[in-house]
């Protein structure tokens, strides 16, 4: 059983104007490669802080977080950027597409960051847009797409550079039930395979059935980890 992520005693404290807020209070969590892990829990329990640490965009104060065996905290800033650019894809609650770029240009961004020529990157982006059912809309600006279509563009952008980990923050909360399930189905069908791991932060109980494992958080702790496949 390969581990994609290993967190040991993670602690993160925010200083909010002199007041200390402990967002992560000794988190221990293993995420298995090739699985879809959901982090669930009430607002303010530390879910977003945890995926930020896992994705290497926030440094923990204490503890260890290894991503595919690499300790991101110990990496030089430049190496960490390169590691993130190659190995991690992001899907956001508010899609966060660049409004002045069309769908193909948005999807091509991770490839360009990784050094690919623009024309080649856009060709590859169009191919991926076809996979998520938006091949005909590659020229459309985000404002010309529905919420579900924008999220599919965001998924294509998270996948285009073939990362080993995709982190999703509330990917369905801005979508209606039907569209949300379609997005989850797409994520599971297109994004997930044995060499790629998905970590999804959500409080949308309607999509829990897509998870392989669910880690429930509360007050900066992991309260419980359920293996849905064993239950199934």
């Amino acid at each position: 059983m390969n581990l994609a992520v290993r967190c040991q005693n993670l602690v993160k404290v925010y200083d909010t104007g002199g007041q200390k807020v402990t967002a992560l209070n000794g988190i221990n969590l293993d995420i298995i490669a090739g699985q879809l892990m959901m982090l669930v829990g009430p607002s303010g329990c530390g879910k977003t802080t945890l995926i930020s640490v896992i994705a290497g965009i926030l440094d923990q104060d204490e503890g260890l977080c290894e991503l595919f065996g690499e300790n991101l905290l110990a990496m030089r800033s430049k190496d960490k950027l390169n590691f993130r650019a190659k190995n991690i894809g992001f899907v956001f609650q508010a899609f966060n597409l660049l409004p002045s770029l069309n769908a193909a240009e948005n999807v091509s961004i991770p490839l360009i960051i990784n050094g690919m020529k623009r024309a080649e990157a856009e060709r590859k982006a169009i191919t991926l847009l076809e996979q998520v059912g938006l091949g005909a809309r590659w020229k459309s600006l985000p404002s010309q797409l529905s919420g579900g279509q924008q999220q599919r563009v965001a998924i294509a952008r998270a996948l285009v550079h073939n990362p080993r980990l995709i982190v999703c923050d509330e990917p369905t909360s801005a979508l209606d039930h039907e569209t949300g399930r379609n997005v989850m189905k797409l994520l599971k069908d297109v994004a997930l395979h044995k060499d790629r791991t998905l970590v999804i932060v959500t409080h949308d109980a309607r999509i829990f059935d897509f998870a392989d494992r669910i880690a429930e958080m509360d007050d900066g702790h992991i309260v419980e980890v359920q293996d849905k496949r064993e239950q199934g």
């Binding site: 965009i57 650019a85 992001f90 660049l98």
Partner: peptide, 13 residues
């Protein structure tokens, strides 16, 4: 700023 943040998260230096 959010767009710059997204680029930064994706690995832009």
């Amino acid at each position: 700023i959010m767009q710059f943040g997204v680029l930064k998260a994706m690995g832009t230096s």
